[in-house]
């Protein structure tokens, strides 16, 4: 399984990421997910979120998750994940994920599992900034 991980402060440009997709002819499902910063948290309007990462550990934990994902869904051809750190204003993407597989079921399942596990073990934190 190919894997690509980026943790950085740059804007997530989905068009560029999709243009760089590298899928074999066996791929029938390209699942893309964007996590956007909502305009409110707990009914309070916010201006954005400051993300902090323990980058070395986050990278290690993401690769552990990719290893487990590959074991659970061996048909998946590629996973690409981008997570922003630093200030992300409302409406912008803080997370982008792409999973490529021959059929949709494994892409949906693996993508859901990966994000759930990320929120459990990858050391990234949010600091809400009011608008």
């Amino acid at each position: 399984m190919r894997r690509q991980l980026s943790i950085g402060s740059e804007l997530i440009d989905e068009a560029v990421l999709i243009a760089r997709r590298d899928a074999s002819h066996g791929i029938g499902a390209a699942l893309c997910f964007s996590g956007l910063v909502r305009g409110s948290e707990d009914s309070v309007q916010i201006g954005g979120i400051e993300y902090e990462a323990f980058s070395e550990m986050a990278t290690h934990q993401f690769h552990r998750l990719f290893d487990e994902l590959e074991r659970r869904w061996p048909m998946i051809e590629s996973v690409r994940l981008v997570h922003r750190v630093g200030w992300v204003p409302v409406g912008e993407s803080s997370l982008w994920l792409e999973v490529l597989s021959p059929h949709r079921a494994e892409s949906f399942a693996a993508g859901q599992w990966l994000i759930d596990e990320m929120k459990r073990v990858v050391p990234i934190w949010k600091r809400i900034q009011k608008g």
Binding site: H83, K119, P123
Partner: peptide, 10 residues
């Protein structure tokens, strides 16, 4: 040793 609260990525 790193000490931290529950993580919140995404």
């Amino acid at each position: 040793i790193s000490i931290f609260p529950p993580v919140q990525g995404g």
